[in-house]
Design a protein around this nucleic acid. Sequence first.
DNA 1: AGCACGCCGACT
DNA 2: GTCGGCGTGCTC
Length: 808
Amino acid sequence: MSKIAHVIVDVPIMQTDQPFTYLVPQEIDEAVEVGVRVEVPFGNGNRHIQGFVVGIDFLNNQTEDSDQLKPLVGVLDLHPVVNDELLQLADEMAKTTFAFKITCLQTMLPSVMRSTYKKWLVAVKDVPQHIEEEVFLGLGERDWEEIKESSYLSELHRLRQAGCVDVRYEVTTKNKVKTMKVVTANLPREMLLDIQANTRKNAHQKHRLLNFFIDAQEGEFSVKELVEEHDLSRQVIKEAAELGWLLEEEREVYRDPYKDRVFQQDEALVLNDEQQVALDRVTKATSENKNEVFLLEGITGSGKTEVYLQAISNVLDEGKTAIMLVPEISLTPQTVTRFKRRFGDKVAVLHSGLSQGEKYDEWRKIERKEAQVVVGARSAVFAPLENIGLIIIDEEHETSYKQDESPRYHARNLAIWRGEYHRCPVLLGSATPSLESRARAQKNVYHLLQLTKRASDNAILPTVSVVDMRRELKQGVTGSFSTPLLTELTERLEKKEQSVLMLNRRGYSSFMMCRDCGYVLPCPNCDISLTLHMDTKSMKCHYCGHEEGIPQCCPICDSKKIRYYGTGTQKVEEELQQLLPDARILRMDVDTTRKKGSHERLLQKFEAQEADILLGTQMIAKGLDFPNVTLVGVLNADTALNLPDFRSSERTFQLLTQVSGRAGRGEKLGQVIIQTFNPEHYAITLAKNQHYEAFYQHEMNLRRQGKYPPYYYTVQLVVSHEEELQAAKKMHEIANKIKQALTPQAIILGPTPKPMARMNRRYFYQTVIKYRFEENLGRVLEEILQESQKDIRSGLRVSIDMEPQHFI
DNA sequence: AGCACGCCGACT
DNA sequence: GTCGGCGTGCTC
């Protein structure tokens, strides 16, 4: 009876999106189980690739078809890296997002566990001398990448046929475990004393070492620590180990990014009655194992986080675990500290600021059940926790919870799936819930919990005023700062209070334009203008990363009057510095926060009041909590309003509400000034009044009329090709096919070129489908994907995005 | 994806 | 007649 394994192989295409069956060699029989990664030979050439074991079987009669199966090469893991639940989740994800199973599986794991491949040419026998010298350089083996262009290729091909040379495939996975050498006393205390008595007096090192272990008696000590802090040499430790006094061992260590920080433990705060009601409802669901979804709608400052913390604490008390998702952008040191203070070592943090190795270590901490609470961004929804008692998604309206590449999953949906699996509640929280979630709460699909009061009594809602920039313009203000905003800023400087200024970068950038002929410097690959970056002194494309020098004169008319336009943070900073020469300004944007830890340093500086004004993009809108900030200014509230996206009002409202919440977090009264060219727009007037409910009603009405989510579902199909005609043709073909399969109730928008029609030298066409009930939709989309496979060779790419978050 | 196979034109 | 170009099919 021979063991066989069903394996999902690392070839992300449709034809291989299914398990392949391999024989399990006797020698590694024990190690091969469901959920481990394996190395398998694949295809005609038997190149070696990584795969995931998704099933195990046994063959009774060996004669039948076992001779058609290839044996797998080896095992890459000692223990399964995906359990049964996550395997099921991968299947679910593949099905609902139209992604490949292998892509889903890889997405769930830290990136270090993705294998890299290398091909070697190996000399076997009778290799001609000139090949030996020119190709193998006398080494007997050569990296294929280095010789695949060589002129000996055909000769090598013949030699391979003759068996003189061979190809070796290498699969490497970088999930290295960091280790540390530790020593323990290997002999009882009496014997150590005995040894010490017989050791020469002038062997100072040995005496010191023996004394140390006689005093310390038990415990493990790292060699590094002994050398650095107890004045012992590596040599004497090694000798002691050889003599059998000490026992040397390699210990795994975690790269703990927070190892140098001491987190002072804190205690649960007293909740107000609203918070208490919310907590009780959630806790009741967790302890009764009820799979319910709660929507916690609470104004900024209403203490949602404290409810999360106490709910998690209750879950831990029941011996269960919890996941807390926060948007990447608000996974700030402040947030992390808050969790570390409450739960100490029980917390694992997963976010993009960590190195690959650090991420892997945090993941391993979870997998080995050393962490019970996981705090992280989108992908933390895959945390390999068992016995989950609660999943929380903070700022649930954030679009970053949806991945914008394959697999295009929404963390909220997967969290709810896991909630069902574990029979535990899911808690969605936001001051400005997405219309989708809020509507579900309305229909009692989710349970609505509301926090309407600020948590601490002395914190009052800030006053919000809107400045009409059209009027300012008429009065001769041409810059980024209105008179009221400047007045307030000046006043804050005098009072030694701090201000936060936000520049809404969405739909905005600073570009070079010739004043004489109007020429705008474009990206050679994409359909947009290049953006000026002063820090690197270059022009960059925000879409494809193309970079070139700053032009000194216009490439078309040769005029020297080529200047930059638009409002980047750097330019605003300069403008502000001129207006307020004494102000200490901190700029925070992608340029000043690119380096690791710089984000944190900037905030610390601001917190220590080493600056008066924090000027930044969207990233300052979330989660920051500085008591001395009494003024928040939004320089351009409406740049996003004009984008061709039905969610642009919703985004603007959310952003303004959120940034307003940054003012007056302490005891002083806060003020918010919103500058806009659309002062009557409902997204702005309602944000001014912090009136979510009214916004919800108004926007729902528009969505109903416009047949948009949450009344309708949406799918976006995108076709791209290097030639515009090819992309357009295929898109029309697909759109026609869809039209035929769907009911007349479905609304098909397009095909149209995407607003950003060319990106990375490719042309994009899209079709959006709005629908309510379409039985055939899933099947047709599957067919479209299937049929598009043969077009891949001609350079066509087709993507399907269920419930897209961005339409541009 | 990446490998082998097979069918064509250009060359010894 | 053969070398190497690229289009096609398949991968346990």
